[in-house]
């Protein structure tokens, strides 16, 4: 079973986020980036488990500039055999999906894994786009996956529960929490990652379809109003009269 895992990078989850005064750009100075947790913890690890059970290879792909190599090496350290980086700075999900499609269309991967979303823009767009471009089924927000021969049995997360879905390969699967347990790369993995191939590919460079024009900070809360713990009638009054929510 050959598997492709799409990996993206995202600002570290506790990083403070700020924008230039005109709202034109994100301030990236000193920003730490990590491998997108859904891609690393769930998609990649489940892919490696399937490979360990069935043989085959796990490849990772990232569409991004050379500064992404450091997070790509981490995926190799966790256990992927080979990495591909399509050299461009994508402006939107369409640019990413078009590049991955161009790469994967004649490679016969059995499964293409993605995360359910990248934590920066929470787009959740790339996997569905890929599935449509490749004309193959798509299991979104998978939080459980078992395999029997060419059939995969997945749990697709839905509001308040899940759907159990049977699907044949090839398929695109986006990974949600629960699909696997996080693996920490060990020293051997980190050393081996340095010698594994990281292929840099030329981009197709399609035009973006989304135009991000402005950033702002969310409206600040006006500050907490403290209420006497003995007097919950007062809280109820405020929720009714001031907040108008009950």
């Amino acid at each position: 079973m050959n598997i492709l895992v799409c990996i993206s990078k995202t600002p570290e989850t506790t990083a403070p986020i700020d924008f230039t005064p005109d709202g034109g750009a994100l301030k990236t100075e000193g920003m730490n980036y990590i491998l997108n947790p859904y891609d690393e913890w769930y998609a990649l690890v489940r892919a490696l488990e399937l490979k360990e059970a069935n043989g085959g290879q796990v490849h990772v792909i990232n569409v991004g500039p050379s500064s992404n190599d450091i997070v790509i090496r981490k995926a190799l350290a966790i256990g992927a055999e080979e990495a591909y980086r399509v050299d461009c700075d994508p402006k939107d999900a369409w640019m990413v999906a078009a590049e991955i499609h161009a790469f994967a269309k004649d490679k016969n991967y059995d499964i293409i894994f993605t995360g359910k979303e990248t934590l920066d823009y929470s787009g959740s767009l790339v996997p569905g786009m890929l599935a449509e471009l490749l004309q193959i089924p798509f299991i979104s927000y998978a939080n459980h996956l078992e395999q029997s021969d060419n059939t995969l049995i997945c749990h697709r997360e839905i509001e308040g529960g899940y759907e159990e879905v049977e699907v044949s390969t090839p398929v695109v699967i986006s990974a949600a929490k629960g699909l696997a347990e996080q693996r920490i790369p060990n020293m051997r993995g980190i050393m081996m990652a340095k010698r594994k191939p990281l292929h840099v590919l030329e981009a197709q460079c399609v035009a973006p379809k989304q135009d991000l024009i402005h950033y702002e900070k969310p409206p600040a809360r006006t500050g907490v109003q403290l209420i006497d713990p003995e007097n919950m009638d007062e809280l109820v009054r405020l929720l009714h009269e001031e907040a108008k929510v009950i």
Binding site: S122, L125, G128, M129, L130, E132
Partner: peptide, 21 residues
């Protein structure tokens, strides 16, 4: 869950601009 699963596919099928959330 449905909307999120469909939006990317539909944008490709319709060749349209797209935004989620």
């Amino acid at each position: 869950s449905k909307g999120k699963a469909l939006v990317g596919r539909l944008a490709i099928k319709l060749e349209s601009d797209v935004l989620s959330g």
